[in-house]
């Protein structure tokens, strides 16, 4: 295992060292000490590394991740795991706004709460939040799943495309074109699998499912007030 202390090295040094593993991988396990909220830690990884960040991370931590397993032992700033393609990102604490924004794949687990716009414009990632999510979460969500074990804020799933949303607690309000949908057998199965992958113990039958009413898919004059 390689340890890098961010009070002694720059984020640039760290990221370059991690990117150098993309070709021939010589060190799989990495530990990052004293991150102290610095931005862009461990972004752009492209190798199945295990990176443990021991403290709080700033913006865009693990951004555009491919293959790597990144764990943040603290809180994460804005846009954690944004545009992730594959791999896993786990936040032990809370995550700020736009967690998992536009991510195309992989698994993002937030053990605390997530701020506003969690999963905004998500394109295939699976996001599991143990706590609550803020307003406008899953705005324009295109694909993948968002699981919220706590409550969801205002305008959940606004202008939703095909993301599957599961919420256990309350939903303050649903956004335009987002509706509650029947929880069928296949959805229980999907949710069970998601919770298992995230290592979260919850009863899947206690969740409600939300999805797109697909009324805004093609512009209709009659819907003008919803836009």
């Amino acid at each position: 295992m390689k340890t890098i202390d961010l009070q002694e090295h720059t984020v640039r040094d760290l990221n370059q060292a991690l990117h150098d593993q993309a070709g021939e991988c010589t060190i799989r396990e990495w530990e990052v000490l004293e991150p102290k909220g610095q931005h862009n830690i461990a972004c752009g990884l492209d190798q199945s590394l295990a990176v443990d960040i021991k403290g709080h991370a700033g913006y865009f931590c693990a951004g555009m991740n491919k293959k790597a397993h990144v764990t943040i032992f603290g809180n994460a700033g804005q846009g954690v795991a944004e545009n992730m393609m594959s791999g896993t990102v786990r936040v032990k604490g809370d995550a700020s706004q736009a967690a998992g924004a536009t991510a195309h794949g992989g698994l993002l687990v937030i053990e605390g709460n997530a701020g506003a716009r969690c999963g905004i414009s998500m394109k295939g990632v699976d996001i599991i939040v143990k706590g609550n999510v803020g307003h406008m979460s899953c705005f324009m969500g295109q694909a993948g799943s968002l699981v919220v074990c706590g409550d969801a804020g205002d305008a959940l799933g606004d202008s939703l495309y095909e993301t599957h949303i599961y919420v256990k607690g309350s939903v303050k309000s649903l956004g335009a074109d987002c509706i509650e949908k029947e929880m069928r057998e296949e959805h229980i199965e999907e949710l069970t699998e998601l919770l298992n992958r995230a290592g979260v113990e919850e009863d899947p039958t206690a969740f409600k499912r939300y999805g797109s009413a697909r009324q805004l898919y093609n512009f209709k004059v009659d819907n003008a007030s919803a836009y």
Partner: peptide
């Protein structure tokens, strides 16, 4: 979706440079 305003943009650009 993941940044608002010029201060955030500075961090976003840094992210693109890092990647």
């Amino acid at each position: 979706p993941d940044w608002t305003g010029p201060d955030d943009l500075a961090i976003k650009i840094q992210e693109l440079r890092e990647i």
